[in-house]
Simulated assay, not measured.
Amino acid sequence: MGNREDLLSGARRCLEERGWARTTVRDIAAASGGVSMAAIGYHFGSREALLNAALIEAIDDWGTRLGRTLASFGKADSSPAERYEAMWVAVIESFTADRTLWLATMEALVQAEHADDLRLYLAGGQAQGRQGLAALLRGAPENEVDAGAARTLGAVQMALFTGVMTQWLTDPGQAPTAAEVVTGLGALTGIVNAHE
């Protein structure tokens, strides 16, 4: 690997171990195998730009893994409700297995207020996520899901993910299980349907 790749790898490791705010240029240089701190400026322009690039790379890798996992639930010979609960089991397992990445992503949301490139990347990722989630839940290819389904079904599912993730990151002992999420959604459906 060259210095650029070493810096990206070191920055990813720092994000996982230290988080966004506590990672220094010195930490990244050390985690990169001794690449000079000046190389950060040469290759990326700033610590923030390097951390943005490292986080984007990590999110892309994680998103690919999670997408493959979630897609596997749409092909089972079980009921839609069973597949939905199984999907939640996998998502909640990710909150534990990929905890540091989820935390870094939350930090990135705050940092995006000051970094247009990061905000645009995260917004694009959300748009793709809404489309992909709507497709997954409908059991259809993404290119067959209309914008309305992405803005309703996909967006609400993403909001559920974010809310449950926040609970798991702050208080895993009290956060809802997959079965409780499904039961809660059933109760909400009853409330919504009662107002029609």
Rank of each mutant, 00 (worst) to 15 (best):
R4V: 00
I59S: 06
G125H: 02
G67H: 10
T162P: 01
T64V: 13
K75E: 09
W102A: 04
R47C: 03
A149N: 06
E142V: 09
L51D: 05
L103P: 10
M165Q: 13
L118K: 08
I59H: 04
A97S: 11
L153D: 09
A150R: 02
E93W: 03
A71S: 15
A187R: 13
N52S: 10
A21Y: 11
R12P: 03
L15S: 03
A29W: 04
F95M: 14
D60H: 10
R151E: 07
L51M: 10
Q167R: 10
V145G: 03
Q131M: 08
Y121T: 01
A29R: 00
T24D: 09
R4L: 00
W62I: 00
G173N: 09
A54K: 06
L185S: 05
D171S: 13
D116C: 07
V91C: 04
N52C: 13
F161P: 01
T152I: 12
G2H: 11
A155Q: 08
V89S: 03
V91D: 03
A49L: 12
A86S: 11
V145D: 01
L153F: 09
L136W: 10
V181S: 12
V35F: 05
T23W: 02
A21Q: 15
E82G: 08
L103V: 13
V182E: 15
L133Y: 02
A150Q: 02
L8I: 03
V164E: 06
G184S: 01
D6S: 08
V145T: 04
A31C: 15
L185E: 03
